[in-house]
């Protein structure tokens, strides 16, 4: 079997650096397999997170040759093996040990987002009616596996460390899923601007490019949310209108947003 070299970041909260490991590789292997093999044979105390090994749980996020990826979905045959493959932790979050970082900030941000609040049921049996084409967009957002690669790559967090006033792409997708949910009647537009700092995003689409679920984060989630914020805070007519109207949001706006690339045709899945 051929062998390959992996430069894996080893370290703790204070310091660390890349360490080279050579291991045999075989057909079909992904980076996670190689790291596991090294862990079992050469470095028992090497730390990493993983669970499903099939791109469904979003645990094994790392930076492979400098690019944010899931280790379980990165095949070795997509990487040049004539030089060492670097495997580093997500750099936007504080290191804990080796490939494990402190991602607890993300969980705290979610806690601060207003929860789902449905309208009263449509039917006497307490259920609702929704058309498939009205939920297609939100289902795209709900594919998110919370790997936090979009957070890792976002320059507002990575370069500017704006963890206090900016929720990050993951949570704009989350808020978009709530705001465009056909049943939701909560209003999150004010806090989107203030607490969650959506204005800091200058739509460079870095997050969308690294999403392992191919969610069209920028175009389908962030831009429509920015439009809502603009409508709410800066449109003079609607500001005037609001002065005479209650603040309570009544309907929803699902399915009326900017058309964007990557969108499925709205075929109803019903048979």
């Amino acid at each position: 079997m051929p062998s390959a070299t992996f430069s894996i970041w080893r370290g703790d909260r204070e310091s660390g650096g890349l360490k080279d490991y050579s291991t045999e590789v075989s057909e079909g292997m992904v980076v996670l397999d190689a790291v596991h093999k090294i862990q079992a044979e050469q470095a028992n105390d090497l730390s990493l997170r993983w669970n499903c090994k099939a791109g469904k749980c979003g645990s094994c996020s790392a930076e492979i040759n400098g690019l944010p990826k899931l280790m379980c979905m990165t095949r070795l045959n997509t990487l040049p093996l004539d030089r060492p493959v670097t495997v580093e932790p997500m750099r936007s979050f504080p290191p804990i040990k080796d490939l494990v970082t402190d991602v607890s900030w993300n969980f705290r941000v979610k806690q601060g987002i207003k929860k789902f609040k449905p309208r009263p049921p449509d039917a006497p049996d307490g259920t609702w009616r929704m058309a498939q084409q009205d939920i297609d967009r939100v289902q795209e957002f709900r594919k998110c596996i919370e790997c936090f690669l979009c957070q890792d790559v976002c320059h507002v967090l990575r370069e500017h460390h704006h963890f206090d006033g900016f929720a990050g792409p993951r949570y704009f997708v989350h808020i978009a899923a709530l705001e465009m949910h056909p049943l939701d009647v909560e209003d999150r537009v004010e806090e989107l601007k203030k607490a969650h700092g959506i204005g800091y995003c200058n739509i460079t689409t870095c997050c969308r490019k690294v999403c392992p679920e191919s969610i069209t984060i920028t175009e389908n989630a962030i831009i429509p949310l920015k439009e809502r914020v603009a409508d709410h805070f800066y449109d003079p007519l609607s500001r005037l209108f609001r002065m005479f109207q209650s603040k309570k949001k009544e309907g929803t706006h699902a399915g009326t947003e900017t058309a964007a690339q990557g969108r499925d045709s709205g075929s109803a899945g019903a048979r």
Binding site: F116, P118, G126, T127, W128, R129, M130, A131, Q132, I135, V138, Q139, R142, L178, H181, L183, D184, A268, G269, A270
Partner: peptide, 14 residues
């Protein structure tokens, strides 16, 4: 569903 889950739908929206 009342907590926000979005299942695939039938033609009549259930």
């Amino acid at each position: 569903e009342a907590w926000g889950a979005l299942f695939d739908r039938t033609k009549d929206g259930r």
